[in-house]
Every structure is written in structure tokens, then in C-alpha cells.
Design a protein around this nucleic acid. Sequence first.
DNA 1: ACGCTTTTGACAGGCTCTGACACGACCTGC
DNA 2: GCAGGTCGTGTCAGAGCCTGTCAAAAGCGT
Lengths: 203, 203
Amino acid sequence: MQAARDALVEAALELFLEHGFDATSVEQIADRVGVSARTFHRYFPAKDDVLFVDAAERHEHAAALLAADDGSRPVLDVLCEAAADLAARLGGDARRQARRQRVIEDNARLRARSLRATEELADLFAAHVARRLGRGPADRVPRLVGTWAVGTIRVAHRRWLADPDVDMVAEVRAGFELLADVEAATAEDSPMAAPAAGSGRAE
Amino acid sequence: MQAARDALVEAALELFLEHGFDATSVEQIADRVGVSARTFHRYFPAKDDVLFVDAAERHEHAAALLAADDGSRPVLDVLCEAAADLAARLGGDARRQARRQRVIEDNARLRARSLRATEELADLFAAHVARRLGRGPADRVPRLVGTWAVGTIRVAHRRWLADPDVDMVAEVRAGFELLADVEAATAEDSPMAAPAAGSGRAE
DNA sequence: ACGCTTTTGACAGGCTCTGACACGACCTGC
DNA sequence: GCAGGTCGTGTCAGAGCCTGTCAAAAGCGT
């Protein structure tokens, strides 16, 4: 049942905010919804998972965006769009997201796991850059660009968490503007690996 | 006893490589060294900690490097040096490090925690950039640069893990070369936030 | 109503981590 | 020499997370 699942997420969120993540047991969450702890674990393999249900689908959406890239625009622009989309979704359901993030933010283990999710995103981005550049997904440039791109998202996210008035999408775009100068290195026909800093960027 | 502690680390590493992280219990580790499980937990609050003992001191060293910055060189150069130093240490004790990393790499939870450590490093870098630029440590530019810098380290690290022949230090320097174009934005006297990059395109 | 599948609950067990208490070794000052 | 402190360690107990297994119950098509 999707309803029970949602109820569990909601109950968990409330309890986590009320007593803290570690201080609330799976049993308490299950009790509040009226199911057994075993049932909780059938929906969510681990207690943590109740907080990370939507990350997966956000990533799928980003992957779809990247897959739809027809190659008509610079790679960085495509990444920027995907990043902005992710940011919009992250900030979207603001009420729930904010609560969720507050729980995650003050628990080292959860923060770690959240970072893990962004690393997967970085791999996704890297794979796309690699595709566009005709290189391996583990090559230096794709990996770096992918990492920098999601780093930009994460910074926007953290700034938004600290101050809800921040416009995450604008933050992401601003970040990519700052990053945009490496563009020359990611152009399809550039010498690319060329570490010669002097490389004319304005081609 | 430092000896017992080291012995525990060593035994844990062996067992983890042999049976996997989850499949080895604290008791097994303790048994191999000849102490009780309770003693293990006295040295290491959690089983995971046995793998992350040295990260802290690496970070302290990086912090010291940054603190020694006299401001005579561009910030990015300073970050690059600190990053290269970290890379050298990461690749240093190669035998042990490599085993350690192999264990971490094929376990999602440990990967996550490892990322958490690099996030702390990002904050360290961001704080230094902020100091140099006279801005707040949570401001956009410092955070972004810090994040990108440690992202660069992480990419170098991952590439080294995948292929031990990769020179991590060179990898880091190459990464910073690619990133170096944002340098203008981090110069002390630049308009900095100015998103008006010369790049004609965007949005 | 009859089976089939899915969902749920109950019980059992293994593991991690923490807390409380005891024992011995090793100082230290009287 | 000896009382008292501390430090490392062991033992025991307990809470909590997670998993496996089995059985009951609830949908659902026929």
C-alpha cells in the first residue's frame, strides 16, 4: 500500500524532528502508523531509507534529461539545465524537503549517505560528458566536470538550507557561470587533456 | 596501548579483505588480536572507525598548510599545494592505504562516510578562501571553490584507486590546471560575484 | 466459493553499540 | 608498606537494528 508507505514517511519525519533520529526507534514509527516494525522494514530496508525515498526518482529524472540531449548545445549548458532542474525539485516540495533536510543535516551518518547520493549523480553527469566528448566515463575530464557540476548543486543546496530565501536555481546558474571558463577544455574539438593553462579559451 | 590499537586496525583490515566488511564481526577482529569485543569498542566507537583513523590527521596537516599561507600567492595555488600534499599522503603508505580503500570502495556505507570526510575538507578550504577574499565562509564563491577543489582531489583519488599507476599528485595538478580559469573570479580585487562571464552563451 | 498472490504479523536470532561493575597492574603520597 | 587513584581490560546485560522463516489474513480473478 502506497498509503501506508507515505504514512510511515510522515510519521518518521515527525518523530525524528521531535526526538532526533537516533532517539526514535523503528518500533515507535511503526506504532504511530499502527503496523508492526517488521512491516516497516518491508517498505524500507533500513531506517535511513525512509529519508531517501525520493532521491532515486530525482536522479532518474535527471538521467532522462541528459538522455534527451541532442548535442546541439554545449555540454556544460546541458549539465546546467539538468542541475537547475534538480535544484528546482529539491526546493520544490519545500515544506517536506526542509524538514527532511533538517533531520539529515544534524546527523553525521545521514549527511554521509546524502553525499553518497550526490556522488552517484556525479557519475551520471560524468558519463554524459564522456559520451559527448567520446571519452571513457572514468577519464579525467568527464569525471572532473561531473564532480564540479554536482558540487555546484550541493553548494546551492547547502546555501538554501542555511537560508530558505536563497533561490536554489539561481544559485546553481550562478555557480555554473563561475565554472564556465573551463568550457574550452570540454569543447568537443579541443586538445582537451592539454594542461597548458595558456590554452586559448575563446575559440 | 597504541600497539593493541594498531594490531586491531591490521587484523580488521585483513578480515575485511578476506570476508568483506559486513561479514566480519567485531568479535572476530577482537579474537584475532586476543582482546574482548568490549575492548575493541573502547578504542573505536564504531566498527567503521577502524578504517578512518588517519583521515583526521591528514586534515590537520592540510589545515596547517593553509594556515601558513602568507597571502603572497594566488589562493588557487595555495589550495592546489594543499591538495597535492593531501594526495601525496593519500598515496603515500600505498600498501595499507590501497587495502583500506579497497574495503571502503565496495561498501556503500563506508563510501558515504569517506565522502563525509571530504566534505569537512571542503569546508576547510572554503574557510580559507573566505579568509583570503574577506568574505563569509558560507558565501557562494568560497564554498564553490572549496567544493571544486576537494572534488578535484577526490577524482584524482578515485582514478588512482582504479589504476595504481596513476600519479595522484600529477592528477591533482592537472585538475587544478583545468579549473584555473575561474581564477579571475577569485582574485582579491575582482567584482567576483559578477556572473557576467565573457562567455556569450548561457541561459 | 475456491485457490493464488500479496501484505502483514509474530517469533527468533545475529549483530552493533553502550552502560555498569569488577578485577588486576601500576603509580603516588603518606 | 600500604591506602587510594587511575588505567586498561573483562564480563554481563540490555536496547536497538536488521533478517529469516513461517503462518495468518486480506485482496482478487475465476
